[in-house]
């Protein structure tokens, strides 16, 4: 197994007025290819901070972060943008779709920034949209979709560049249980197909989909354990809308 993510003593410190907030306080860990990791912990424990650093949206105050063997900690803005574009697929709790663009364009966008030609781009985007079962909504705007559908668009957008890792920060946080389950099923399938997935969640139920659980408290790793009684969903690969 090859190591995709390697944190060595990563810290993130926010200066709020006089006070220093240690959002991450010396975290070291490794994540291998095709792992399925759930990050848990109480509110304010540093989960999102960790995800943002893994996703190269943010840079650590100190420590070493290697992604696929390259040191990302001291890359500049544009290099990080490229890494985000090629290596990372991010799924947000609040979807973060472009409101004025339709589904196709939203999914195409990373490919535009990645310099993929128009014909190839459309093909890949349509394929990704089909993967999440939204082919019949391809020209809808986000506000014409349900929450679950929106989250599936954002998953398609995350998938379309075939990144090394899929990151999802509370992807079901804004969805009801049933829709959340559908999204989790999609993640399970993607994992089975060989994707590496890191998932932040508050719910034990959701975490049970993963292989491994990391628990943070006050910016430190409190628990890092394999999950035994996994919740395995065995259903056909195409998701029911």
């Amino acid at each position: 197994m090859s190591t995709i993510i390697k944190f060595t003593n990563i810290a993130k410190i926010y200066q709020v007025g006089e006070e220093q907030v240690h959002a991450l306080d010396g975290v070291s860990m490794q994540i291998q290819k095709n792992e399925y990791v759930a990050i848990m912990g109480p509110s304010g424990s540093g989960k999102s901070t960790m995800m943002n650093i893994v996703g190269c949206l943010d840079t650590p105050t100190s420590g070493l972060y290697e992604l696929n063997g390259t040191n990302v900690s001291d890359m500049n803005d544009n290099q990080l943008a490229k890494v985000r574009n090629k290596e990372i697929g991010f799924v947000f709790q609040t979807f973060n779709l472009l409101a004025r663009s339709d589904v196709l364009h939203n999914v195409e966008l990373p490919l535009i920034y990645g310099g993929v030609g128009s014909a190839e781009r459309k093909k890949l985007a349509r394929a990704a949209i089909e993967r999440v079962g939204l082919t019949d909504r391809i020209h809808h705007k986000p506000n014409e979709l349900s929450g679950g559908q929106r989250q599936r668009v954002s998953i398609a957008r995350a998938l379309v560049t075939q990144p090394s890792i899929l990151l999802a920060d509370e992807p079901t946080g804004n969805l009801d249980t049933k829709t959340g389950d559908e999204i989790m099923m999609l993640f399970d399938i993607l994992h089975k197909e060989g994707n590496t997935i890191i998932l932040v969640t508050h719910e034990d139920d959701i975490a049970l989909h993963a292989h491994r659980r990391i628990r943070l408290r006050d910016g430190k790793m409190e628990v890092d354990e394999p999950i035994k009684n996994r919740k395995i969903i065995t259903r056909p690969t195409t998701v029911i809308a």
Binding site: N78, A81, K82, R84, F90, N96, L98, P110, Y113, R157
Partner: peptide, 16 residues
């Protein structure tokens, strides 16, 4: 600002 954040998150470089 939010839109800029989204675009940057999915890989738009500064120039874009």
């Amino acid at each position: 600002t939010k839109e800029i954040g989204i675009r940057k998150a999915i890989g738009a470089p500064r120039r874009t």
